[in-house]
Design a protein around this nucleic acid. Structure first.
Lengths: 200, 200, 200, 200
DNA sequence: CATGAATGAGTATTCATTCAT
DNA sequence: AATGAATGAATACTCATTCAT
């Protein structure tokens, strides 16, 4: 009973530290994110930071995991509302891209993480997120294209997911942009749709 | 007259330093590349390095520029030999992807640069390379699809180029790979072809 | 009346903390012994630790004092049983060395303390132990060598006690040992005996 | 030819750093000796320190090695002057102890190193010094006691060397001293002599 | 009194850059 | 021009001690 508040404070501290990690990462970039900065941003001492996380990696890992939880949760909720079963592929794709683009723009953190995927302390969470989208896509297609099963489906989805994500990241990283946003979104949608168009 | 040899030595030194940068970058990765390593690999002193380049960034920038020169040159030559005008899009795409994949695997440098594109000192050279491919693609399509002009061509090419490059980089960065190579290449080719398939 | 239990608890706490100090010191060595480890080993909080001891030094000091109490007590009891008055010097020396060696091997704590005598918070307790052995030795010799009083007795004992203790500590600290154990024990015994042999 | 001054400077820097290590170690003790202190004492930056020594351990190791070189050299020279072949054991022992005691008093460094022998980064140098004295003692005894070969000679020397060194260290560490210096020296000499006295 | 979360000065080590020779 | 020794700010992490609850 006495332990509740303690655990709560603990959870709050962990939360605050992960928040701070996100903030500092978004503001200064992975390269210039130091444990002292994170502690300062969280309003605590470095010592406290190390009471909750064994090292810097663990902080980033926790952030990744939380982010993935949030993304999948948001995605699931959005999907439920969108009722994608009744939605054409192009509409679905456009929605997803628009939402994703807005999210990336709203939070520089995601952009920074995508850009630095290969330097992240653990590859697990990222692969996990990829898997999640792969599975989600697979379910959608199994239902929608029951009549015309798609050849090589997992690989196609793998390509499309990575294509979309990294192309958006690249697009957002260009200042001034090399293309008009509308054109890029259109092209992405067309690419996705084209990849599943029935061909003889 | 006395200046010739000086300029020649100068050019040789610059060349050697850029070579060394490439070597060290490929061997140790951007994160673990130090100016001292580069100077050592070039067989000169750090002091000399700083005589020719104002800082570390400038070295990487020079490397990027040279690489882009080389890539475009190689590409131009290869295109001339392939005579792509007589090649179907799928064949062309498969060739390009296969060659690109082999090149990335053969030289870790390119993979490292692609992965770190957002940390590269200048965006100019990279954008330039993108432009080059964009233009090359545009020419090909203008010739091939004269009858069925493609809507939104630049953006489509932009998407496809980035998709291909970053998806390959992501694929090569996964160990163990999440997909079989053959499947990924097939899916990439299909995606490219699909993006230009005539649809009503 | 209320004070009794408080004092009792207090004594128990102090005891537990000193026990914990001994355990941790033996397990991790003086260098890697932290107050948090000690508190944890004692099953109390660091805060409590600091309620009973002003700082880390005080803990070690208390441990030293207790250890000295124990050692002298044990020694007194053993002496009583051995009846050393009827024992030749070489037999006595060999017994003492054998027992001491076994004790040092059995409990890494003592070895650790001997090795770090100069870093121990207070010299008092250690000097006290030395004094104790000095006095014990003096009594023995006064009785045994009544006929041939030994010149310079205290200093001789001082030298022999320190010689024996530190040589054993040094011997146990060498891995692989530089000498065979049997040879070292023999030499120590001979040294002790030789130091009191009648010479003209 | 150009390399001479460079190598000379290098040697001087190494020397200065080892000197500084000795100074700081003597002044602050092993525990409070930091690389920054050493660099400061040497009048250089930490960076320079790390250009000449891979880590802190290497510095202490170098110091140990130099010290052992100095000690053995001094000992050899002194022995040559003393002509120990014509010296009685007690005279020799008294000389050695007096000289050793003076040296330890003159330079707190040696005292600090002896006290911390078990924490020194490498045991090699110390064992080496021990071996040196062992061998030196052996040679002396083989010559002097040709008629009455000593039983168990190496172990006896081992015991006497460690006894003398650590007893002196202990004696010097006590303030106020527990015994008069003269008495301790006498007792040490007697102990050494007694250990080789012919007994039946 | 007990708790243990919080503190923050302190430690070894790295590396881009400078500058005396 | 060339050298490479020297610099020192920066970084991740530890641990004795304090203090709000």
């Amino acid at each position: 009973m006495r332990k509740q508040p303690r655990q709560k404070r603990s959870r709050e501290m962990v939360e605050a530290l992960v928040d701070a990690t996100a903030t500092v990462l978004a503001e200064r970039g992975l390269d210039h994110t130091t444990t002292n900065h994170i502690a300062e941003a969280a309003g605590v001492s470095v010592g406290s930071l190390y009471q909750y996380f064994p090292d810097k990696e663990a902080l980033v890992e926790a952030l990744l995991e939380r982010m993935i939880r949030d993304v999948t949760r948001t995605f699931n909720r959005t999907l439920g509302e969108m009722n994608p079963g009744h939605m054409a592929l192009d509409e679905l794709a456009r929605n997803a891209i628009t939402v994703g683009l807005a999210a990336l723009r709203a939070n520089p953190l995601h952009l920074e993480l995508i850009r630095n995927w290969h330097r992240l302390p653990v590859s697990g969470p990222l692969d996990q997120l990829e898997q999640y989208f792969l599975t989600a896509g697979r379910l959608y297609f199994l239902e929608q294209f029951r009549e015309h099963p798609v050849d090589n489906l997992p690989a196609r989805l793998y390509v499309l997911i990575n294509s979309t994500v990294f192309t958006l990241a690249r697009f957002l990283g260009q200042d001034p942009p090399m293309m008009r946003e509308r054109a890029v979104v259109d092209a992405l949608v067309d690419t996705i749709v084209g990849a599943f168009a029935v061909r003889d």
